[in-house]
């Protein structure tokens, strides 16, 4: 909006004011002038003015002029009123974003911790979700079925995870004793076969990520997935932290590791579940 020159030049119309923006009526100054001259006239009936002044007097006497200002009566220039409003608006936005941020952080935290318990970090020994299982290493092997803490039968996802973890822990004797390892070993037919078994298995599973996002999380190959921090890479944007972490996770501990598993920290991913499971093949 630019400076508007008053075409009408009518004394009763607005002053030309340099700082003022052109009104939206810009472009029709002649029409405006015509309308103004045609419609805006001083009141020719003096009695109306007298009535109005009388009403003013009466109201004044009655103390009506001491009444408070309602919202509709406040017509101060917007700058004054706006400050309060904008402050409120700003605060509400800040609070809202903090709340959202807090939720997100909490989500990460909760999933991270569950991951953490299941699979701790580097030597991610695939183990049951119970932390002690992991550390214990050798002992729990006996308690195979239950130690995993999962009732799930080993699935392709587990294998996937196991293989990945295997890479991580290869050479670290204790890790190999964990239950899940035992399963892997059994499936592979011995330690020396694990590599080949894994190669075959993960290769077949590779296409899976394309099948479904759900599956993708569990099978993220990118960096061994063992890294919980990187877990998110496995499953972009899936908001499901548990899922992304698939990493090294222990197939046993599966719920958090693999996508689509119901264990996803309670996060409902119904559409993922079937995909994830099926996607492996």
């Amino acid at each position: 909006m630019g400076e508007r020159t008053s075409g009408g030049g009518d004394a009763h119309r607005r002053h030309a004011h340099p700082a003022r923006c052109a009104p939206d009526t810009d472009g029709h100054p002649q029409v405006e002038a015509l309308l103004t001259r045609a419609l805006r006239h001083p009141d020719v009936a003096p009695e109306r003015e007298r009535q109005a002044v009388a009403a003013f007097r009466a109201a004044r006497e009655a103390g009506a002029h001491r009444a408070r200002t309602r919202r509709r009566d406040d017509w101060r220039p917007r700058a004054q009123r706006h400050t309060v409003r904008s402050l409120r608006a700003t605060l509400s936005v800040v609070l809202a974003s903090l709340a959202l941020g807090g939720v997100a952080v909490a989500a990460i935290g909760s999933s991270g911790s569950s991951q953490g318990s299941a699979d701790d970090g580097a030597p991610r020994t695939p183990s049951a979700s119970a932390p002690d299982d992991r550390r214990a290493g050798p002992a729990p092997t006996v308690t195979s079925g239950t130690s995993a803490g999962q009732d799930r039968p080993p699935s392709a996802q587990d294998t996937e995870a196991q293989c990945r973890a295997y890479d991580q822990v290869a050479g670290r004797g204790k890790a190999l004793d964990a239950t899940a390892w035992q399963r892997l070993l059994a499936a592979a037919g011995g330690e020396e076969n694990v590599t080949a078994y894994c190669a075959a298995h993960t290769a077949s599973a590779t296409p899976a990520p394309e099948n479904s996002r759900g599956g993708g999380g569990g099978q993220d190959k990118s960096g061994e997935g063992a890294d919980p921090a990187a877990g998110t890479t496995g499953d972009a944007g899936n908001g499901n932290a548990g899922n992304t972490e698939g990493g090294g996770d222990t197939g046993a501990a599966g719920d958090t590791a693999t996508v689509g598993s119901t264990g996803n920290n309670g996060r409902p991913e119904p559409e993922k579940t079937p995909d994830a499971k099926g996607g492996e093949q």
Binding site: Q51, A52, A55, A64, R66, T69, D73, R76
Partner: peptide, 13 residues
């Protein structure tokens, strides 16, 4: 104008 006269005290601006 009756209303304006009565509520004049409320106006701010």
């Amino acid at each position: 104008w009756l209303e304006i006269a009565r509520d004049l005290g409320r106006f701010k601006g």
